[in-house]
Every structure is written in C-alpha cells, then in structure tokens.
Design a protein around this nucleic acid. Sequence first.
RNA 1: CGGGGCGUGGCUCAGUCUGGUAGAGCACAGCGUUUGGGACGCUGGGGUCGGGGGUUCGAAUCCCUCCGCCCCGACCA
Length: 480
Amino acid sequence: MPKEGITLRSKDYSQWYLDIVQQADLADYAEVVKGCIVFKPTGYAIWEAIQKGLDERIKETGHVNAYFPLLIPKSFLMKEAEHVEGFAPEVAEVTHAGGEPLTEPYVIRPTSETIIGYFYSKWIRSYRDLPLLINQWANVMRWEMRTRPFLRTAEFLWQEGHTVHATEEDAERETLLILHDVYADFVEKEMAVPVIRGLKTEKEKFAGALRSYCIEAMMQDGRALQAGTSHNLGQNFAKAFDITFTDQNNTVQHAWTTSWGVSTRLIGALIMTHSDDEGLVLPPRIAPIQVVVVPIYKNDEEKSAVMAAVDSITKAWKGRIRFKVDNRENLTPGFKYNEWEVKGVPIRIEVGPKDVQKGSVAIARRDIPGREGKSFVPQEGLTERIEALLAEIQQALFDRALAFRKERTAEVSTYDELKQQVEKGFAVAYWAGTTEDEKRIQEETKATIRCIPLEQPGTVGKCFYTGKETTQQVIFSRAY
RNA sequence: CGGGGCGUGGCUCAGUCUGGUAGAGCACAGCGUUUGGGACGCUGGGGUCGGGGGUUCGAAUCCCUCCGCCCCGACCA
C-alpha cells in the first residue's frame, strides 16, 4: 500500500530519501540557516541510540571523553600543510566579537586535530604520559556547497577521537582497533549495516594523514557511503604542533597521533540501507521505540477491558523492551498503523476486544510489510516471543542488506566492465594505477576507489587500467 | 560555482499569461457521530501574496531590483 507523501524508490531514489526524512519526522530544514537541519525529536533519538552504542565501545577500548573549544585560532589550521589545503575552502570564520573586530580571526572547527594538538603538546612530556586516549562528542561545521539532510549538512554532530602514542606501531594498532572493534562492530551489530573495511588511497585519505582506514556501506541505489574513518596521522600533526615526549632513553621524540570519527551521517546510512517505500525501517537494536501497542475499542466498556489487557501484557516489558502504548483518542487504528510504519517501529502489537476474549494479540513486523508480516499469537509467552522476534528482525535486516550488497558487487577485468558495473554497485578490480589515473577514471565514470579492502584474495591479476600485474584489489563505486 | 525550480493561511498548491473585493485541499479549534489498515458531518479561526522601488484610478498579477530556499551537477564525512 503506497504511502502518501513518499516517492517510490524506483521512481526517484533521492526524492524518496528526502520524503522519508520528512514523513518519519526525523528532521526539518533549518531554512533560516543555509545547509543546516533541525534534528527533530524522532531523529535525535536515533542519534542518541547511536551515541550510546558507540560511547560504550569507545570506553570499553580504553578511551575517555573530554571537550575542546568550538572556535580555533585561524593560524592553527595553517600549521599542517595538507590539512589547510583540505579544509581551508570550507571553514566558516568568526571575525568580530563583542562589537569589535578580532585581532586574529577564529574558525569554527571543521575538525579538531589542530586545537587538540595544541593542548596535547602542553600536556605530554614523557613516555609515561602515553598513550593519551581521548574522545569528544561535538558539533563541527564545514561550509559544503551541496547539502542533504544527515548525509551532508553544514553543521553536523559527531564524535572525534584523538590519541597520542609513543610508536608508529602503537598508533597503527589504535587506528585498526577503532576500525574493527568500535566502528565496524557497532555499525554491523547495532545498525545491521554490513560494511567493507579498507584503506583509503592517497587521493581519498584524510587531509594530513599518513593512512586513512574506513568502513564503506552500500546504499539501496548501489552507491557507496563512507560510514566511518580512522586515521593514522603519523607524526604530521605532532611535528606541526610540537607534540613531543622524552622516551626511556631520555631522548626527545615526536609522538604518533591518530584521529577517527563517525557522524550523524550514520542516520542517513540507516535510512538508505533498510527503509522501503512504506517509510523508515529501523533495526530493533537501534530503534528508540521497538514495539508500539495499538489498543482498539469502540466504547468505554471495551476500552477498559482492552486497556486492562494492555497493562497486564506490557507489565513484563519494562526494562526489557522499549515500547510505547499509543493511547491517543480520536485517531483510528488504521491511521496509527500507518504512522508507526512510516516511523519505522520494528514491531506493532494490536490489542482489541477479540483479543481480550481469545487471549491473543495481533503482531506485525515492520520489515515484512502488509498481511504477510502480521499474525495472531497468544498473549502467553508474548514477551519472550517479542524478544526473539526483535533479534530475528535484526538479523534479517543485516542478511538482506548483505545479500543486496553481494548481488550488486562484481569483479571486473576491463575498463568497459567497470563503467557498466559502477552503474549498479561495487566494482572489484585489480589496481596498479596512480593517483592521476584515479582522477581520470573519476572524471570519466564518476566512480572513485572507495577503499582497498583489508581482506585481499592474495592472488595475482592484471590491473584493468594499466595492464600491470598486481595482487592488490580495490573497490570502485560512485559515492555519497 | 554552473544548470533548473520555487517563494501566496501551519503544509501542498491554484490564481499571474489576459490587473478589478485573496482561494482550494490538508492541518488546526469546537461539537456530535465514529474506531480490527490513512473516519465523517456541521461550525469556526487563521494570509503585510519573500523584501524594496516603479507603472496604474487600482498590482499576488506588469516592469526594475534585491533576498532567500529547494533540486540536479562538480567538490566533500
């Protein structure tokens, strides 16, 4: 049953996405502030769930939270050559305050390596101070030319980890720990979004990094979305900000730093991975509301019987299931079904007079729309049944997304094949080209190397572009 | 930055070509009837027509100018 106000995916995927954001009430355009959005309560609740899952993992891996200033002296940004080049075009500047021009303008942070680097240089003296493992939850601003709710907004929310280590190996271990145990683990287990872990090419790496690792997901239109990045910054920032320490041998050395972040863009990934033409679909583990209960009655007598049943049914749920009883008056059940479907609640329970008599409820799963996903089950054992079903839905969403990605991924051995494949999804190819080659391919196909997957077949093949033999495979795709 | 679209009650838009008392649907408020897949009736409130200037007896409508937002593309988490 097509929903009002939602464009079909097959008709216009981009418009469908915007419609979902609006209809599920996730965000509003901040029309008075260019490129920004308002995170409405429903959308912000998803962010809070993401924060919770990530924050737990960040802390479990030994990090602590702190907070640094929003404004950064402009000169700080200039200290690391590649970094300036990467970010200068998109920073917003504060030139006046208190009615006076500032002697040195501030920039609104586009990312915090520089200001954090400044403080780290003050705090670190000895190898005994290392590793320093700090994360911050913050907002940042990048003046992007073209914005899209959640996927790319001028201001966005994120976490950015900034760590300092005594050796290159330690920094590398940290970078990969975050990639695997924090980002990939969270995104796959909690968000049910399968990702490919890989290394960025020189062209795509973070401005100022030695190496950038990433997790890449495939959206339903076959395009890639970078869902998280973890950078080994080498000694670049340590040298720019003079982050040094004295080692065991009393020698002063530059430290090795890392930075890593994921943003509210993950909400976009969630939408574009699971949702359908009926609206938002949320994986149970991330859903702010996992189960909605719609009571059905015609008169006061029925109402009291139904509500009593609802109370006794939901009593056992507290602390186990995140649920909401939709007891709004003057709205028909049908209206409520539609509303909660659009908003992506994983399970809907209907309780009506017939259920009171029979000791049953109707249970409908969001990931299987329509009659197929709805059945009548006994009230007895319902809590366990729901918990099992939530887990089943979580797995089903992941499996479906993974199957979709596999179906839309193919190995290519010629440039023509690549051109065709990137229309559909990911093209896996042997690659021995240069950054220049990569740029040319992007101009011609709009596709970029999303990553060099960490998992490599280890076999030798011919680069489709240069014809050189190589063992390195990469993934080409169009990206968000 | 290039291309396109739009600006009229809260929302979606009609009205602009051809100037003549600002409209519809939805939403909202009240009352009543409804309620197992987007209910219905009656009543009601709500608009400096994006801003400024001009033409005219008269401008949402014609002219000039400024502003803003959205979509597509290049660039980017």
